[in-house]
């Protein structure tokens, strides 16, 4: 590797008219994102609550479903998202340093890992389909039909992973848009904090999956 230092770009923020200081603007944006993340947490918490109640009411059915879920794909996907968290952290760190090219690379890596997660998830859904684990398909028999209550937990599985998937798709789209925006030279000088704000969101999607994985795949085995 050539021994040339990375040219650091100036890193700053453009003051919007409703704010008085940049510190105020920066903190407002961070607080706004945290407030949004609080709502995301409560949204998913409702599903976790459903899963818990089902476990209390139908423990055997829940265990039955859990043993049919693709444990190893879920585990691999967790690793993928933890990796994407690392690359997102790298993007934030380099954005603060003003290393724009490095940062763009880290953002793209994050988006790729997110897409890999979705691919694996899609494959998992396909396997579920293949194993007749989709009770809502009218023309396809359901492999656990003898235990009706199992449908309920399986539904929680589909809704939770689906909702998480929607968040991930949204996240990747915003990420690509942000990468495109950030590829322009003046970006870090005017909007560096967008990377940080977005980073919070991405980390939080990972955090949700870190809870989803054990709740659906591990705890009830």
């Amino acid at each position: 590797m050539a021994d040339i230092g990375i040219a650091a770009e100036p890193v700053d923020l453009e003051l919007a008219e409703q704010f008085t200081t940049k510190a105020q603007q920066r903190e407002a944006a961070t607080l706004g994102m945290w407030a949004w993340l609080v709502t995301e947490l409560l949204l998913f918490a409702g599903l976790f609550l459903c899963a818990l109640i089902l476990r209390i009411q139908h423990p055997q059915s829940v265990t039955l479903v859990t043993t049919h879920l693709k444990f190893w794909i879920g585990a691999t996907n967790t690793v993928v998202l933890i990796c994407s968290s690392l690359t997102m952290s790298a993007a934030i760190v380099t954005s603060r340093l003003g290393w724009r090219r490095f940062m763009l690379g880290a953002l793209l890596a994050t988006a790729s890992l997110g897409s890999l997660f979705l691919l694996l998830k899609g494959f998992e859904y396909y396997q579920d389909y293949d194993e007749h684990m989709m009770p809502f398909l009218a023309d396809r028999s359901y492999v656990l039909a003898h235990d009706q209550a199992s449908v309920l937990f399986l539904d929680v599985y589909y809704i939770t992973t689906g909702l998480h998937g929607v968040h991930l798709i949204t996240g990747i789209s915003i990420l690509l848009w942000l990468t495109w925006k950030a590829s322009r030279p003046a970006f870090l000088q005017t909007h560096q904090n967008r990377i940080e704000i977005y980073g919070l969101y991405w980390h939080f999607i990972d955090l949700i999956w870190i809870i989803v994985f054990p709740v659906l795949y591990v705890l009830n085995r």
């Binding site: 139908h58 423990p59 055997q60 059915s61 003898h146 235990d147 009706q148 209550a149």
Partner: peptide, 11 residues
């Protein structure tokens, strides 16, 4: 009632 309707459940 549950056992009559759904004996596979809660063995």
């Amino acid at each position: 009632r549950d056992k009559i309707l759904n004996p596979d459940h809660d063995l």
